[in-house]
Amino acid sequence: MRILLVEDEPEMAEALRVGLHRHGMLVDIAPDAARACEALQCRVHDLLLLDRQLPDGDGVTLIAKARACSADLPVIVLTARGSLADRVEGLDLGADDYLAKPFALEELLARIRAISRRPAKVVLPTVQAGRLRFDFASREAYIDGESLPLPRRQVLLLEALVCRLGRTVQRDVLLEAVYGFDDAIQSNAFDAHVSKLRRALADADAGVEIRAIRGIGYLLREMPRGEG
Rank of each mutant, 00 (worst) to 15 (best):
M1W: 09
R2A: 07
R2M: 03
V6N: 10
P10Q: 11
E11W: 06
E11C: 09
M12L: 13
A15L: 11
L16R: 09
V18P: 06
L20D: 11
L26A: 08
L26H: 09
V27W: 09
D28W: 06
A33Y: 08
R35A: 13
C37H: 11
A39M: 10
L40F: 11
L40R: 13
C42F: 00
R43M: 10
D46H: 15
L47G: 06
D56G: 07
D56P: 07
G59K: 09
V60S: 10
I63W: 12
A64L: 12
K65F: 14
K65I: 15
C69E: 15
A71F: 14
D72M: 14
L73N: 11
V77C: 12
T79Y: 02
G82L: 10
A85C: 10
D86Y: 10
V88I: 14
G90C: 11
L91Q: 05
D92W: 12
D96M: 04
D96S: 06
D97V: 00
Y98T: 05
Y98A: 09
A100Q: 08
A100S: 15
A100G: 04
A100P: 11
K101V: 02
P102M: 01
F103C: 06
L108E: 01
L109R: 06
A110E: 10
R111M: 05
R117E: 14
R118C: 02
R118H: 01
R118F: 00
P119C: 07
P119N: 06
K121T: 08
V122R: 09
T126R: 10
Q128T: 03
G130V: 01
F134E: 07
F134Q: 09
F136N: 07
A137W: 00
S138D: 11
A141V: 02
A141N: 01
I143K: 07
G145A: 05
G145Q: 05
E146M: 02
L148Q: 00
L148T: 00
L150P: 08
P151K: 03
P151W: 02
R152L: 00
R153Q: 07
Q154V: 06
V155S: 00
L157M: 00
L158M: 12
R167L: 12
R171D: 04
V173K: 07
E176Y: 03
V178Y: 02
D182W: 10
D183P: 05
A184K: 05
A184I: 08
N188T: 09
D191I: 05
D191V: 02
A192V: 03
A192E: 06
H193R: 00
V194H: 05
L197S: 08
R198Q: 13
R198I: 01
R199V: 03
D203T: 02
A204P: 05
D205E: 13
D205V: 09
D205F: 04
G207H: 02
V208L: 09
V208T: 08
E209K: 07
I210W: 06
A212G: 12
I216W: 08
Y218A: 06
L219G: 14
G226P: 15
G226M: 15
E227C: 12
E227P: 12
